[in-house]
Design a protein around this nucleic acid. Structure first.
Lengths: 223, 223
DNA sequence: CTCCGATTTAACGAAAAGCTAACACGGTTA
DNA sequence: TAACCGTGTTAGCTTTTCGTTAAATCGGAG
């Protein structure tokens, strides 16, 4: 599922946009000013909807900061502008914004535009890599390496490992693991997670120790 | 230099757009109806500006035809629509249009949008030769060679192979494969991909091993 | 040290995913 | 019209993965 970061200072509009996006199957994150936006952009949203008129840092400042950091430069940004800010629009597009939408806009247009950008983002290879100690995961290629050795992981094992490795130190309950690798309300026993964990640990060999069991809670990956 | 195909039935507007683009360093080609557009699209323009209200074939028809042909499907299309054609806009974007501009528009906005699309397009595709190990694909001529032997591939087989070979290592799901070789929402079973894969592998002989099945996900090409 | 609940682990069977042959359909050619 | 080609679907078969069960093991509180 794709996550959209919505940056907009007016509560009502922000909530409306978020609700609308969620109704269409997107996850959302929200920020109400430029600084919050820059912080939350580090969480790797798939797309950012950026209001142009913000208190403090304005849209252009935020966009410039986003494009300046390699970590966030690849995230497509759609500007939200009011009528008559045409100069800003050109500036924004030349600064690297992917698109703009003029307020007021309809829900349908918003969603269609978002989809277009996401589709495109999927096409251009975003070569992201998940690294955690000696472990390297390539989600695009669905390959895993430990040091220089290729690991033979099944689909489910890869997803589970990717979840833990993407957030080292974070503890996930078995329920969360199932929800995030199989989908919400996927009907399985908690034991299923344990079992999969066993085979993963076995495949990781000695390095398997880095997956810690947090008794009574779940599992965590140590970097 | 990039060439833009401008499809617009009103002479005055078409000339205006062309002049404007040329003043900004683009080459232009012009068509005044849908059929002419489809013919001229075969000349590989870098981008198409497509008016939505055309005599005869309308914009949607033209877009559909463009996306249906592998030869032209990759060319980004920006729709030119009048105010209040919101339904059309959504339709167009979902049919694969890259963007839209609402008339009347300023020259600056037009050029900025065109640049945005070209920048994007230029980053990705437009390679004359796709090479992956012993495999060589010539998209322009639609020919394929394995070592020194010419391969007899059907149209669909070529597209599929080109997709995988253009991004070695990258795993594509069956859905993505269909979407990118046949078009978004093309109605086929996933099995269709498997079947095509069988014949491709057979034609590749021993080298077919380089196409790996990633169980639970899709297919991947090993360099 | 003992007990109890939580976790690890092996084993088994069910379910899913993939491969492939056979067939169906529409379009083009002889 | 018949034969052919490209393309999809269907269905049977094989391989792999997944989930449950149940027994063994572990860890910490008392």
């Amino acid at each position: 599922m794709s996550t959209i970061l919505v940056v907009e200072d007016e509560d009502a509009i922000r909530d409306l946009i978020c609700m609308n996006l969620e109704a269409n199957g997107f996850a959302t994150d929200a920020a109400e000013d430029g600084e919050e936006a820059l912080v939350k952009a580090r969480r790797h949203p798939d797309l950012i909807l950026l209001d142009w008129m913000l208190p403090g840092l304005d849209g252009l400042d935020v966009l410039r900061a986003l494009k300046a950091s390699p970590e966030t430069a690849g995230i497509p940004v759609i500007m939200l502008t009011a009528k008559g800010e045409e100069t800003d629009i050109v500036l924004g597009l030349e600064m690297g914004a992917a698109d703009y939408i003029v307020k007021p806009f309809s829900n349908k247009v918003l969603v269609a535009r978002v989809r277009t950008q996401l589709r495109r983002g999927g096409e251009t290879e975003r070569n992201d890599v998940i690294r955690c100690g000696a472990l390297t995961l390539l989600p695009n290629e669905r390959r895993a390496r430990l040091g220089d050795d290729e690991l033979e992981l099944t689909c489910g094992e890869f997803d589970l490992l990717a979840l833990l490795a993407a957030h080292p130190g974070h503890v996930y309950t078995r329920g969360q693991i199932v929800a995030r690798t199989k989908g919400e309300d996927y009907p399985v026993t908690d034991r299923a997670v344990d079992v999969q964990m066993v085979t993963i640990r076995r495949k990781l060999g000695a390095w398997g120790e880095h997956i810690e069991t947090v008794r009574g809670v779940g599992y965590r990956m140590r970097p």
